[in-house]
């Protein structure tokens, strides 16, 4: 009898865990970056929108910054620095599609960090930038 009550409870916990693994909102991604940042750095002291803004708007030893394509205003329509193609706004307030798919978030951070920083970004850097774009109003 005891077993039969336990099984649904376990199933429920497993379901919660599965839900936690699949990030679908900007806040979900922020939480994931926080977990990763804590794991890689015991002194992690939270994300900073101000630091994220600085990171976003400056170059990092290479030709482009994030704002080269996304512009200085993440709520604005951007323009690809090389091809001129329109880039939809990055700030979730202006474009609800942003930070809603783990595949897309992983893909674009991987590509764009390689282009802008010349390496993968740390969880701290990703979280700072996300914290910054989440503060942008439409």
């Amino acid at each position: 009898m005891r077993k039969s009550t336990l099984t649904p409870a376990l199933f429920f916990i497993a379901l919660l865990a599965a839900n936690a693994a699949r990030a679908e909102t900007p806040a979900d991604f922020l939480k994931q970056f926080e977990t990763a940042a804590r794991q890689s750095d015991a002194r992690f002291a939270g994300f900073s929108a101000q630091r994220g803004e600085q990171f976003f708007k400056t170059t990092h030893g290479m030709e482009w910054s994030c704002s080269s394509c996304h512009t200085q205003n993440p709520a604005a329509v951007g323009k690809h620095a090389k091809t001129g193609k329109e880039v939809a706004p990055l700030a979730p307030a202006a474009n609800p599609e942003r930070f809603s798919s783990p595949e897309k978030v992983d893909k674009w951070f991987k590509r764009n960090c390689n282009d802008v920083v010349g390496r993968a970004c740390s969880a701290q850097e990703k979280g700072d930038v996300l914290a910054y774009v989440m503060t942008i109003k439409k």
């Binding site: 090389k82 595949e103 893909k107 991987k110 590509r111 764009n112 390689n114 282009d115």
Partner: peptide
């Protein structure tokens, strides 16, 4: 890819 990382899964 012409100066950019355009990798996909």
């Amino acid at each position: 890819h012409f100066g950019s990382d355009a990798s996909v899964d």
